[in-house]
Design a protein around this nucleic acid. Structure first.
Lengths: 217, 217
DNA sequence: TCAAAAAGTAAACACTGTTCACCCAATTTC
DNA sequence: GAAATTGGGTGAACAGTGTTTACTTTTTGA
């Protein structure tokens, strides 16, 4: 259990090495993905032996998990920033969707890795032990709060369950993010006539998602 | 280039071995995912040497690609069957979404593998060379046709572009499918009060997706 | 029948994550 | 201060992986 912030020189040194490993891993992940991120390659980058890594991380998965957490923390910050703005509600809502997707596209390997754990691993299933505390979980609760606001203010259907709606939104965002990550030219590159930039398409998608929730008289 | 259907005894034998490999691979993929699917394990299962596999498939990726194609063919069949039904439009639309997700959940490893290729591989980006011919591409065109029908019949907004709308729908389906694949208890297991079955949630999601497209006076 | 082509194989290459026994230096305890 | 204990760091090994190469056997076609 490495204390944070580090106090003793020993802990401080340990923390420093840990950080060196993590930032080396961060670079490799960004450029070559989780498959290109090998312990040996990491060790070489920081001039240690491969086995040394295991004095700091129990396994590769554990190491990658920390990278994912940091990534979601960054997403969380960006989204939080948008939610706090004083722009009209539907603009904020659309911006959240669009921003989420753009971050994913910006760091495709990070995003893919974040959701490519072993099947049956921790997805955004609320109330699973620990999920609330994870950065992913925090991001979700922010989203949920905004949906609740939309319901309370009459923008969204009053019969909506905020938690379920938020999950549906997340799923829709996730889907587009994945599509764009795995096919950068999505939705199209050289089509019949439907020439539209990925960014524009993301806005279009965001609009549809929000529309689905809106109250209609 | 193995001809199909096979004519000569040689080709017939070759085809038989190929099929044996594929069906062994199919079983392993279903139970242990693409990571558990190793050439050596496959070879052992069919009592061949590992290198023998390479006389039938150029690489593991090539082999897996065929499994994915077969999988999408199955999806296509199911969806096609729904589209052809004479039920009300919005029922059909919702059923398509729900069915797509349920198939994914039914064969989680298949679905995950189908979309977990190298980043920047073939996603549903129309008009990329060959995409139209792939099973994935075919499935997409079926979806697009249904959306067009929805527009023409006044169920959907008349200003919609069928191709873009179809892609948005697909993204939303894909997102939920991925969520449910990676977190089987999604949307929730033991929540505060929001007890809802995954199936019910999928219906809810499908409903939202369709709503986003609907015409409102 | 005999040459050519195809099918199948063992062994190796270059990787992977992980563990083990060991060494050495720093820290803690007496 | 000396002895003992901890913790960082290492090389070598284990058990895997996809793939290639050289080689042998079988089957095919003229």
């Amino acid at each position: 259990m490495t204390a944070f912030p580090p106090t003793s020189p020993a802990e401080r040194r340990r923390h420093k090495v840990r950080t060196r490993i993590l930032s080396a891993a961060e670079t490799v992940l960004a450029s070559d993905g989780v498959d290109g991120l090998s312990i040996r390659r990491l060790a070489e980058k920081i001039d240690y032996s491969p086995s040394a890594i295991y004095k700091y991380f129990g396994s590769k998965d554990e190491l990658v998990f920390e990278l994912k957490e940091a990534f979601f923390e960054k997403i969380l910050e960006r989204i939080d920033h948008i939610v706090d703005k004083q722009t009209p509600f539907h603009v904020r809502a659309r911006d959240c969707v669009a921003t989420y997707v753009e971050i994913a596209v910006d760091k495709p390997h990070h995003y893919a890795a974040a959701f490519a754990g072993q099947i049956a691993e921790t997805g955004p299933s609320e109330d699973e032990p620990g999920f609330q505390d994870t950065k992913k979980g925090l991001a979700f609760s922010v989203l949920k709060k905004m949906v609740q606001e939309g319901i309370d203010d009459g923008h969204f259907r009053p019969d909506l369950n905020a938690s379920l709606a938020a999950k549906s939104i997340w799923a829709s965002c996730h889907g587009l993010a994945m599509m764009r990550v795995h096919a950068p030219s999505f939705p199209s590159l050289n089509p019949n006539k439907t020439t539209i930039s990925p960014e524009k398409f993301t806005e279009f998608h965001a609009d549809l998602v929000v529309r689905g929730l809106e109250f209609r008289s």
